[in-house]
């Protein structure tokens, strides 16, 4: 009997400890609420695919601005578009942005598309990072801090647009490379990113995101038949700072149309919600079961008949 009372006290202690941990658990998930509508002054870029002619000047401007390694072939070498065999180019550790050519079925002439970080309003990379290496600024730029990065590459898994790239070739300081919206060099001063400034055809328009959405709608409305009536990025993954309008269906030019229209973190919340529950309920539950079992065992020790009847029951 004494041992039972001892266990009971232990049960209380364990349960209390569990409750305490459970109470602390909500603190873990910090205040990134789901209803946060985004910063009002958040900036963005509107990409008009009908205007892009694939001159790759944005690639060159980005390379210069971010002091990235020189490309294998010059930026005005258009033959690179002909060599996209099984998989198209993508941003990698040497280029924050690339332009690809698509032979869309709905358009006679080829369509070009620039790829770079879309700077989500609720970035999956940020929410998936376990060392908080990502931050989002009031301007909407999603920034990466290589000083705390462990190199687990979860952000690459999480990014619905597959943008972050890893320096696999570096042994001692491999880091994630991705477009930073030219935040440190330009955005802080309110200037547009280097690619936008370099674009000769205004295929890239820099401005406040809300304003860009208005402009995009207006272009679609004003130029009947020129555009598909859809703004890619308005709701994708909860909304991105970079927005796209195009003259052909988006899936014909490499856009993933199956990307959820809500922030990626929403898919993880179900699991995050069970964490405090497990932390609080499990200790009591299993300590309780243990107590019951132990009590029975003590009872059986005192009266072996109990065990026999129990055995019959299970055998039946």
């Amino acid at each position: 009997m004494k041992s039972i009372r001892f266990s009971r006290r232990r049960l209380v202690t364990i349960s209390l400890a569990g409750v305490m941990t459970g109470l602390l658990a909500p603190l873990q998930r910090n205040a990134r609420g789901s209803d946060f509508p985004g910063y009002t002054e958040s900036k963005g870029v509107l990409v008009d695919l009908t205007r892009c002619v694939g001159c790759r000047t944005c690639e060159a401007a980005c390379n210069l601005e971010n002091q990235l390694p020189a490309p294998e072939r010059p930026f005005n070498d258009m033959s690179i578009f002909n060599e996209q065999s099984d998989h198209l180019r993508r941003p990698d550790d040497k280029a924050f942005t690339v332009v690809n050519r698509y032979d869309s079925g709905s358009s006679v002439s080829p369509v070009y598309r620039k790829i770079q970080c879309n700077h989500c309003q609720e970035p999956a990379c940020l929410t998936s990072c376990f060392v908080n290496a990502y931050t989002i600024t009031a301007e909407g730029a999603v920034l990466y801090n290589h000083q705390v990065c462990v190199g687990c590459r979860t952000c690459m898994i999480a990014c619905p647009f597959s943008v972050p790239a890893f320096c696999y070739s570096s042994a001692f300081s491999p880091q994630i490379m991705k477009c930073n919206f030219c935040y440190p060099t330009r955005l802080v001063q309110g200037r547009p990113p280097a690619c936008v400034e370099a674009c000769p055809r205004d295929a890239l328009t820099f401005g406040e995101r809300a304003e860009l959405l208005r402009i995009a709608r207006q272009r679609i409305k004003r130029n009947k038949g020129r555009y598909i009536n859809y703004i890619y990025g308005e709701n994708e993954a909860g909304g991105t700072s970079w927005l796209y309008i195009a003259g052909v269906p988006f899936n014909e030019v490499g856009f993933d149309e199956d990307i959820p229209k809500q922030p990626i973190i929403n898919y993880v919340k179900d699991f995050l919600a069970i964490v405090p529950m497990v932390l609080t309920i499990w200790p009591g539950l299993f300590a309780g079961i243990h107590l019951l079992v132990k009590r029975r065992a003590t009872a059986i020790d005192n009266d072996p008949k109990l065990a026999e009847s129990d055995h019959d029951k299970t055998a039946a």
Binding site: C55, A60, N63, A70, R73, P74, N76, D77, M78, S79
Partner: peptide, 29 residues
């Protein structure tokens, strides 16, 4: 319709487009 049809690249432009290391072939195809 391509850049070189109207434009002549300057020295700064060649640096910008990283053409300096390039040999003869290539260019504005």
């Amino acid at each position: 319709i391509r850049c070189s049809g109207c434009h002549v690249l300057t020295g700064a432009g060649e640096k910008f487009y990283k053409t300096e290391k390039r040999d003869q072939e290539g260019g504005e195809s």
